[in-house]
Design a protein around this nucleic acid. Structure first.
Lengths: 150, 150
DNA sequence: CGATTTTTGTTGTATTTGCAACAAAATGCA
DNA sequence: TGCATTTTGTTGCAAATACAACAAAAATCG
């Protein structure tokens, strides 16, 4: 069987590595760009959902967000109806770096798809979305402590 | 532009997370499975190449390998002609868990491609390989301290 | 309503990860 | 050949990551 996952792993690590190096310029440490884009695109999101979205452990997200707050990129607001949750919003500072993150990501996307026709790029996107749908379920299953059989 | 990279990042983190949880059963800590498969498939490889292959920092690979050696999964051997390099080989113990890692990876691949036709799976593999080729260059460029322009 | 379960968030601890800086062997080149 | 550069490997730090265990609010359900 063709090892799709190995390719995906290599690509992901390479790109994450590049992004982390490039975002140091904006005082973002490893992985923080992931949270900022999601928070800007989903203002009011709670950290539990953010972790699910990014596919990272809940506690990792909690600490990353705490640090982003400490550095003034985002802020947490209490919810009126639900005392348990804390909604997360970007600050002006957070909003202001969003375009730079997008620009970098766009550039990487562009480089990644060099030599691709429009159709090929769309096909890839479509297939990847389906893979993610499949994997989403597996991730939640295993993350919740269940054991896969194979 | 469709954000291929975000999809790839999510898929990769989810899968890595699953693998790490599942391989604890074999006393492998985070990421170690990556090295073992490559070493079994390329016995005699040096750690510099391993890092390149996996797309991880040189020092990260160095430490992961040191730990694998310490736990008896692999061994380093000096080269006769080149005093600088250390060739890495799996031990019997290392070889013996390779099939389990493969089996888990195969299962994840299978789950990831659920609902895919043979052709779709092949197309995806083909497109991903091209993406990786593109990204490989970028990674080396940035990792070596160069600055991308965009 | 009340008890149980789920959701959401936190902290303690161990581990991996990666940058910087160094060293030594190998290679390239004038 | 001799000197500069590249390759390969290491260690010191600082930081992210994740598992375990806990707490409290909310939701479910008899």
């Amino acid at each position: 069987m063709s090892d799709i996952l190995r390719e995906i792993g290599m690509i992901a690590r390479a790109l994450d590595s590049i992004s982390n190096i490039e975002f140091k310029e904006y005082d973002l440490t490893k992985g923080q760009y992931l949270y900022i884009v999601r928070i800007c695109e989903h203002p009011g999101i709670i950290q539990e959902k953010l972790a699910e979205m990014i596919k990272v452990d809940r506690t990792t997200a909690a600490r990353a967000i705490k640090k982003l707050e400490l550095h003034g990129f985002i802020e947490k607001k209490a919810d009126e109806n639900n005392k348990k949750i804390k909604k997360i919003y970007p600050t002006v500072k957070g909003e202001s770096i969003y375009p730079f993150i997008k620009r970098e990501n766009d550039h990487s996307n562009h480089m990644a798809l060099k030599g691709f026709t429009e159709t090929e790029a769309e096909t890839l996107y479509y297939l990847l979305q389906r893979v993610r749908g499949n994997i989403d379920k597996e991730w939640e299953f295993v993350k919740k402590g269940n054991k896969r059989k194979y």
